[in-house]
Simulated scan of single mutants.
Amino acid sequence: MKVKKSVQKSQAPDDARAEARRRQIMQEAAKLFGSRGFEATTIRDIASAAGILGGSIYYHFGSKEDIFLAVHSAGMETITNSVLEAISDIDDPWEQLEAAAVAHCNALLSSGELPVIVSPYYSESLKTLRPQLIAQRDRYDKIMAGIVERLDLPPGIDKHIFRLHFLGALNWLPTWYRPKSGMLAADIGRQLVAMVRR
């Protein structure tokens, strides 16, 4: 038993270091994917930004596509958890939509450790990953669909199209937003809801 405990203790720091390095790679990759796009970002670029040799990345990820999937998954988890927390004590569906929009915008524009990457479209080079990317979004889409379903929209408005349109507007935010504009992420979220509500 003593031998097993000593082995576990010696492995723990290695596991922690590997996880920290994996997180660092994802962090730098997210920045590059966000600023350059998927196609223009290479494994060498990511490795250089993370301060490691290019070949060392393959100890943590099998390919650039695997890194993108990990970054995208982490981003969806961040947004989902933020929205769930924001709407937890709200009953009115329009107020829920506004709180969800504010949380979504805040997560997208956050300057946290791991930038959130939620692409509003899939480039040709990500075509093979489309089923996995959609699967990563499913939980969040169901939350938003539940909110939209309860909205008192005018007759003739398709709630499915409304949801896709609204999510598209939210996800395009990082494309056009400029910090120097002085607009707050929360204010943008509220404006988007105000426009569709009226």
Rank of each mutant, 00 (worst) to 15 (best):
E113W: 00
S111Q: 15
E149I: 00
K9H: 08
K64L: 09
M26E: 14
A12N: 14
S123E: 10
R139L: 08
S35T: 15
Y122N: 12
M144R: 08
S111I: 10
Q8F: 12
K127A: 12
A29N: 02
E65D: 15
Y140N: 11
Q24F: 04
V102W: 11
I57K: 01
E19L: 07
H104C: 08
Y177I: 00
V116T: 14
R21K: 10
K180Q: 10
G55I: 02
D45G: 05
L173Q: 10
Q27S: 04
Y121S: 15
M144V: 08
A70P: 12
S123Q: 13
G189M: 03
L192C: 05
D45R: 12
A186L: 01
D187K: 12
V196N: 08
A169P: 00
K142H: 12
G182D: 04
G37R: 14
A186H: 03
I161N: 10
P115H: 00
M76V: 08
L170N: 06
E98Q: 15
P155V: 05
D45A: 07
K4I: 11
I147H: 08
D158T: 06
S48Y: 01
G112S: 14
K127D: 02
G51K: 09
G189P: 05
T42S: 15
M183Q: 14
L164P: 00
M76Y: 15
D152Q: 14
W94N: 04
Q96C: 10
G146T: 03
Y177V: 10
E19D: 12
K64T: 07
R137D: 13
Q11W: 11
W176M: 02
I25T: 06
S82T: 01
T175Y: 13
L109Q: 10
R178Q: 02
D15E: 15
E19I: 07
G62V: 03
W176P: 01
F38Y: 15
V196K: 05
D14Y: 10
E39P: 00
P179E: 09
I117P: 06
G156K: 01
R139Q: 08
A186F: 01
A135S: 10
F162L: 09
K127P: 01
K159H: 06
D66M: 06
L173R: 08
A40P: 00
L192V: 05
A99G: 00
R44N: 10
S125M: 00
Q24T: 13
A50Y: 03
H104E: 13
